[in-house]
Nucleic acid binder design. Structure first.
Lengths: 198, 198
DNA sequence: GACTCCCGTGAACGGCGTTCAACATAGCGG
DNA sequence: CCGCTATGTTGAACGCCGTTCACGGGAGTC
């Protein structure tokens, strides 16, 4: 049976993801080195390539975890409470901001990784994204009951992108070190104006 | 006199910037190679390092040009015309979008370059950014004459970041290949709702 | 014409991701 | 319990990268 071998393989896979995540979290995706990783995981460099095709695949696996944790955090921010749709959008956005701020390098790795080259976008990626979009589209449909689904969809993506942009540039130190509560204000300001009925 | 030498040095500097820009525009910042560049410019690899400290400095010089052209494009989009402040914001944003779409790789290099490490943010960078902010703050002050300058400044940065985010994710193929006119609609949708008086 | 200084040159260096021939080991039929 | 094979593991080696530096040649000076 291959259970022994497969078990070790899965154990190594888990270890590699864990160590890679730690290294990305502390030093950034661009500082991930195969030799460092082998040392961290107590294996040889070649062993990495028996589990993952290349370092990108490993980084993808880390991103999958990060993305899921991000989704859970955003979902948990409003779950179980009864909150007006406008406030729900603000609370979710703030949850997104705080996740990005607390796990900046892991969060950045989600977008720094270039997967355009060869393979298609993985399934889990689109699934998580759709879940996030659904969380935004729901409140929007409540706020604008007369809007067509297409317009709701467009606004959903627009709002997600807008909040993402505010968080991205707000956390970027070189442009302007914006205090966290000011970034919160920016998000609230934009969302309040966008979602206020005319 | 050092005029002969200095002349050649400046000529090489200009050539290197030109060739580097061409290579970034066609292949992206991460495909910029010192050896390729030396071949393009007809010099040795070492000569590059007599003009620039490293390839980052050269990429910075390319970014400076790109940033100035971006600023000119956005400014020209509404110059000389008398346009209501709301429409001016939309027109500027669309000019930003089209510049990013037409010079995607050069535009992306503006943000991909990591200058956090050692040196301070260059002066031209902040100056150009302030010019862009001024173009946004003007219309905003017209639309919201009763807002405090601090709130105008916050909204200025928020709107810039939001539009940037919409353009960024809209042009990102992996998330969803959004047609250009849909990105325009998203920007218009957000700006219309943000700048509409309640 | 000789001397000096400076700058372009490209081979060399260290570090990277990735590969692969050599080796170790686990599973298995006898 | 013993070979035999097939699969997993290893780390030296490969090719490519940015960057450096000892060398050689050409310009400026007397």
């Amino acid at each position: 049976m291959a259970s022994k071998a497969e078990e070790r393989r899965n154990a190594l896979r888990a270890t590699l993801i864990e160590k890679a995540e730690a290294r990305i979290a502390s030093d950034g995706l661009d500082q991930l080195r195969a030799r460092d990783l082998a040392k961290d995981a107590g294996c040889s460099v070649g062993a990495i390539y028996n589990v993952f095709g290349d370092l990108n695949e490993l980084a993808m696996a880390v991103n999958a975890r990060t993305f899921q944790r991000l989704g859970s955090t955003v979902t948990a921010s409003f779950a179980g409470k009864t909150i007006p749709p406008r406030d729900r959008l603000v609370i979710m956005s703030h949850a997104y901001l705080h996740f990005a701020e607390e796990h900046t390098l892991l969060w950045r790795a989600l977008f720094d990784l270039k997967m355009s080259s060869d393979m298609a976008v993985p399934q889990w990626y689109l699934a998580e994204l759709q879940a996030v979009f659904a969380h935004i589209a729901g409140p929007l449909a409540e706020i604008f009951p007369d809007w067509q689904p297409e317009k709701i969809g467009l606004m959903t993506r627009a709002l997600f992108s807008a909040v993402h942009g505010i968080v991205l540039l707000g956390l970027e130190k070189r442009i302007s070190a914006v205090p966290l509560d000011q970034i919160e204000s920016m998000i609230a300001l934009v969302l309040a104006n966008v979602t206020s009925s005319k």
